[in-house]
Amino acid sequence: MKANLVQAINMALSQEMEKDKSIVLLGEDVGIDGGVFRVTEGLFQKYKDRVFDTPLAESGIVGSSIGLALNGLKPIPEIQFEGFLMPALDQIISHASRIRNRSRGMFNVPLVVRSPFGGGIKALEHHSDSPETYFIHTPGLKVVIPSRPYDAKGLLISAIRDPDPVIFFEPKKIYRAFKEEVPEKEYTIPLGKANIIKQGEDLTIITYGSWVRETLKAIKDSKYNIEVIDLRTLKPLDTKAILNSVSRTGRCIIVHEAPKTLGLASEIIALINEKELLSLEAPIQRVTGYDIVVPLPKLEKYYMPNIDRIKKAIDKVMSF
């Protein structure tokens, strides 16, 4: 069927819940209301005893999810906006990510924390952030960000079946931006594997989430033959895909919306420096958010990467 990102995620949740009775959904307004973005719509009606509207407390939601997981269930908590993840950071960083290690493998925490993230929807403060670095930096977590409905379904099913804690960020800007064919039958996309969206020899652009689509727009009429990598999983990172590509193209740009300093681009550049420095024909460029608070809607456009900035970076890298 043709589905947008919201529908694809909903389909994945519904199909997995049908199959695996240990899955429980919990969060603010995820039940009768179907979530503020309607991602869980209809699931409460279908699986009444496994979808829970919780009190308004993010640490409580994630902390309880850890306990649910320790007693054999598969909790999928939703945090309404990424900006409200912060109270739950302690539970994620101090416990969810560490319990396997702390108990020497006797316990694990197979939870999937879902949260919409990123800007571009003209929202209030704390509704447009890109906090993925905090989670990528935390040992023991996996971090997944889909760029399209087809991937969202396959990645989410993999995340749910994964025995480790997964942070699943949903780029809210493209929740309903476009539809594509999403098979109703079950399929998975492995975590830790990037997707080479477009092959090319001149330059590698590495990105993820809503910026995959913007990058494709930016290179549409380019005179260069550009390779585009959609990371899909930010942790563990598909280093092979990155290094293989850069070893061939010798040029690289990384696009993300998160702030520049210690954004994922920094790690990718360090990786390339360590392993493929001699393949490089030009300094690697970053097109990212700035090291500032995401502005409110009137100024937000000055924060976001955009097609022009991507094009300028291409010119710079190619003319070096």
Binding site: V24, D49, R50, S59, G60, V62, G63, S64, S65, I66, G67, L68, A69, L70, N71, G72, L73, P75, D90, Q91, S94, H95
Partner: peptide, 19 residues
């Protein structure tokens, strides 16, 4: 970390109830 584990007990006991 002081006080953070009561939530795990909460979730664990919640799973007892659900199961």
């Amino acid at each position: 970390p002081v006080g953070s584990h009561m939530l795990h007990a909460m979730g664990y006991s919640w799973a007892c109830k659900i199961k």
